[in-house]
């Protein structure tokens, strides 16, 4: 896979409601606060707001810890006005990449000393659809989507 191929997920910054650069340890807390208020504004249930904020927190930390810097993109998706609303989160970095994606997503596996290794597997359980693409030396893209539940 070459560089160009890795970018086959087209991210048009203008489509996203929130674009955040993760560079500082402090940005992790900022990203989860922004995700939280964005989900709240879009009438997600309190539990789902917390799940979205937690997922974003995990994604930002992964960027900060492994890639040093990267981006978090968040947008609201609607199939029809007021029907089937969802929030899409993308974490993108050009860091070292993940060697064994399957193992990382399965959980209980970590390359970092101070971690439970539950980051990626946790995110996958918190949200409704999950996509990850990673290549060693190129970077990692994670796409996560959470639908708003009816009633």
């Amino acid at each position: 896979m070459d560089d160009k191929n890795f970018n086959d997920i087209d991210i048009n910054i203008n489509d996203y409601d929130i674009v955040l650069k993760i560079k500082d340890e402090n940005d992790i807390a900022v990203s989860r606060q922004m995700a939280k208020s964005f989900a709240q504004k879009n009438n997600f249930s309190l539990a789902d707001v917390t799940k979205i904020a937690t997922a974003v927190s995990e994604l930002s930390r992964n960027i900060y810890r492994y890639a040093k810097e990267g981006y978090i993109y968040i947008k609201k998706k609607e199939t029809e006005p007021d029907k089937d609303v969802s929030i899409e989160i993308i974490a993108y970095d050009r860091g070292p990449g993940i060697e064994n994606v399957e193992q990382a997503v399965a959980g209980g596996y970590t390359t970092s000393e101070r971690s439970l290794g539950l980051g990626l597997s946790g995110i996958r359980r918190l949200i409704d659809s999950f996509y990850i693409k990673s290549e060693v030396g190129k970077g990692t893209v994670v796409m996560a989507e959470k639908r708003r539940r009816r009633f």
Binding site: L46, A47, T50, K51, L118, G122, I123, R125
Partner: peptide, 14 residues
């Protein structure tokens, strides 16, 4: 622990 935080932790398997 806030109920929604407990749910989130449980769902993540923590």
């Amino acid at each position: 622990i806030q109920p929604q935080v407990a749910l989130t932790l449980a769902q993540m398997g923590i």
